[in-house]
């Protein structure tokens, strides 16, 4: 929307996101994610502090400082600092251990690292972050809707049956496979299909107009739609 509105004023905004989840390394991720901010931090913080011109130790310190400031740019809270710190750590590890992984392994590892870092970014605070990490590590066990466990009894070996999973729709019966299917579709679109910028103008037109009805539905009639995350920044 921002790109379209700017075009109406004859302003061409630079590309800001280039399929970041297709990145094969964390460095690649930062070439694709919030590109304008990455460039700003690189030009005005990292290079301004000396970049990689004063030895490996200073380079690493500059890199970490830049990422911590990048975290702070998103909000004055410790969880954003932690997010920036995690990315700084990932970048440092990439520099210290410059392994060349096969594309699929690199992509998987990068995606996993990015998703782990999203936890402090989105959590309401450090306590919530720790609670989420505990859950992700399976320290709270696995819960599944009682009806799913009833329908597939072997699941009872690994999962505790609960009446509802409030965070997954109503999480009662069909909303669980429903949300799972939607997530799977989302990941297929994100990881396997070309981005809008990679499509030809004709294909882009087809894609956009084919999904027009769903766009109207989502914009005006979706009761639980959450606003675009970056509206808050």
């Amino acid at each position: 929307m921002a790109i379209g509105l700017a075009r109406m004023l004859n302003v061409r905004l630079p590309l800001n996101f280039a399929s970041p989840y297709k990145a094969t390394s964390i460095a690649d991720f930062w070439h694709r994610w919030h590109i304008t901010l990455s460039r700003f931090l690189r030009d005005h913080v990292y290079i301004a502090m000396g970049g990689n011109r004063r030895g490996a130790l200073r380079r690493n310190a500059n890199l970490m400082t830049t990422m911590l400031l990048g975290g702070l740019w998103h909000g004055a809270a410790w969880n954003f600092v932690l997010w920036g710190g995690l990315h700084g750590l990932y970048l440092l590890m990439g520099r210290i251990y410059p392994w060349r992984l096969p594309a699929f392994a690199g992509r998987t590892l990068t995606l996993l690292a990015v998703l782990v870092a999203w936890v402090p970014f989105r959590a309401s605070g450090i306590d919530a972050t720790v609670a989420m990490f505990r859950g992700m590590a399976g320290l709270n066990g696995i819960a599944l809707p009682q009806m799913i466990v009833h329908a597939v009894p072997p699941l009872a070996i690994i999962a505790t049956a609960v009446p509802a999973l409030p965070s997954l729709g109503d999480g009662r019966t069909l909303s669980f496979p429903e949300v799972t299917a939607c997530l799977a579709l989302g990941w297929v679109i994100v990881l396997a299909l070309p981005s809008v910028h990679e499509l030809s103008q004709r294909t882009r037109g087809w894609t956009l107009s084919a999904g027009f009805a769903f766009t109207v539905q989502a914009l005006f009639f979706a009761p639980n739609a959450t606003p675009f995350l970056y509206f808050q920044f």
Binding site: L174, E178, C182, A222
Partner: peptide, 18 residues
């Protein structure tokens, strides 16, 4: 109007599944 637009992508995914 809301009746016409009561169907989201989830509905489209789950209809054939069901």
């Amino acid at each position: 109007l809301a009746g016409l637009f009561a169907f989201d992508l989830r509905f489209a995914l789950m209809a054939p599944t069901e």
